[in-house]
């Protein structure tokens, strides 16, 4: 009878969030400004400040008047932790892909102009407790890990 035992239930602080590839590629878009909840890296380009919302994208802040910065928009890129900007092109990690996004001068419109698929490894659990075999059974078909949510 001991052979019949099922896996014990372990409690993890972070749980993976998956997206299907088609949805991952479709979901890069500009959204209305939103509150900063889980900030990461900060990038500065001209009068704009880009603040990372971990695994979700970048807040675009117009800092033309440093005494009164204005949140202009949110650049939604799932699985994103970092960007680099050259000219009017934003280069970002979109989970496991590297995407190139062209933007106009005031970042009011964007479009994805290039994508290098499978450039990066999937983001790993922030606390390192999960390993591949554990969450494989929960992965949907064509699913890619784009986030780790904290909800113990």
């Amino acid at each position: 009878m001991v052979l019949m035992g099922s896996d014990p239930v372990y409690y993890y602080e972070y749980k993976p969030v998956f997206m299907k590839r088609s949805e991952l590629e479709r979901a890069v878009r500009l959204e209305a400004a939103s509150p900063i909840k889980n900030p990461g890296k900060i990038y500065i380009k001209d009068q704009y400040i880009f603040i990372n919302e971990k695994y979700k994208g970048f807040h675009i802040i117009d800092n033309s008047n440093p005494s009164a910065p204005v949140q202009k928009a949110f650049l939604h890129i799932d699985g994103c932790l970092d960007i680099a900007i050259k000219g009017n092109y934003i280069y970002a990690d979109n989970a496991i892909d590297l995407v190139a996004i062209s933007a106009n001068n005031d970042y009011s419109t964007i479009s994805v102009t290039g994508r290098v698929r499978n450039s990066f490894a999937e983001p790993s659990s922030p606390d390192g407790y999960w390993y591949a075999r554990q969450f494989e059974r929960y992965r949907p078909k064509d699913g890619i890990i784009v986030n780790w949510e904290y909800n113990y």
Binding site: K15, F18, M19, E23, G143
Partner: peptide, 10 residues
Amino acid sequence: NGIEYYKVKL
């Protein structure tokens, strides 16, 4: 926001 995710829940 109209984007489909798959979340692991307990």
